[in-house]
């Protein structure tokens, strides 16, 4: 029953895309659109198959995913402890909050010019942009998460004998987790957009680069293929990795309502 509902909701999710593809397959040839302006569906599929066969598409995808993974993991490693420290110390939090407000606005592609000066073109600069997109949002959300833990729950843990370490691992971290997960989802969304922009400027590998170079040769089928891959990868990441984590933890705990 559960499986059936899952399946039908997945099918319903795909339905508008199928309609879009059908419209594309019918109308672009029908109006005889110049392929330099917009490609036929068949040539995009062809480009996809070629990209997989000669390995270039996979190379671009894995380069992009690796940057996102490294940038995100580094950001989380620093952001979560910092956010918790800010959450428990009013002094640290009130001192750093204005800075975080400022840099949240800046976070993203505004960093690309200086990042390329610091790290050169390529992996370092782009990972740095990802790092920034995730870091500030997750830190701020962690801080927010810690401050939403009811005082009584912390008091309960203390009166059951929790010391500093147990308070951190048993109360503050799980208590802030709903906000941390929200922060990661939002941050990764920004990071993914920032990634494509950064790759157009600061590298010679990755999905953004693939799009940008294809433009020089009027290869609209590669551009559109890249756009589709970017969108699909994000949906997969969000639906198959992030959403299930949320379901298995904080929804079960009744700490957020199902969206």
């Amino acid at each position: 029953m559960m499986m059936l509902r899952r399946l039908s909701s997945a099918l319903w999710f795909c339905a508008p895309f199928v309609v879009l593809l059908v419209l594309w397959a019918v109308f672009i040839p029908y109006f005889d659109v110049n392929p330099r302006l917009f490609p036929h569906l068949s040539s995009v599929i062809q480009a996809g198959i070629e990209g997989i066969k000669d390995g270039t598409l996979i190379q671009h995808i894995s380069a992009s995913l690796l940057r996102v993974a490294v940038g995100t993991v580094l950001a989380l490693l620093i952001a979560i402890p910092l956010g918790i420290a800010m959450g428990v110390s009013p002094i640290i939090s009130s001192f750093l909050t204005p800075l975080f407000r400022f840099f949240s606005v800046l976070a993203g592609i505004a960093w690309i010019p200086i990042a390329t000066l610091w790290f050169g073109y390529g992996f370092g600069a782009i990972t740095f942009v990802i790092f920034n997109a995730v870091f500030f949002i997750v830190t701020y959300n962690t801080l927010l998460g810690v401050s939403t833990i009811p005082l009584q729950v912390r008091n309960a843990a203390a009166s059951l004998g929790a010391g500093r370490w147990a308070m951190l691992t048993e109360v503050l971290l799980p208590g802030a987790l709903p906000n941390i997960v929200t922060g990661i989802r939002t941050g990764l969304g920004f990071a993914w957009r920032g990634l494509i922009a950064a790759e157009m400027i600061a590298t010679n590998l990755g999905l953004g680069y693939m799009l940008f170079v294809a433009r020089d040769f009027y290869r609209t089928e590669v551009i559109v293929l890249g756009m589709i891959v970017i969108g699909v990868l994000w949906l997969l990441l969000d639906r198959l990795v992030l959403a299930p984590i949320e379901r298995a933890t904080i929804e079960r705990w009744g700490m957020v309502q199902r969206a």
């Binding site: 009584q152 729950v153 008091n155 309960a156 203390a158 009166s159 059951l160 987790l177 904080i250 009744g254």
Partner: peptide, 19 residues
């Protein structure tokens, strides 16, 4: 001196660990 396991507390708001 501060909270400790020698004094158990039951709260009006229950204060259970939701996780």
């Amino acid at each position: 001196k501060g909270p400790g396991p020698d004094r158990g507390v039951v709260f009006q708001s229950f204060a259970l660990f939701p996780w």
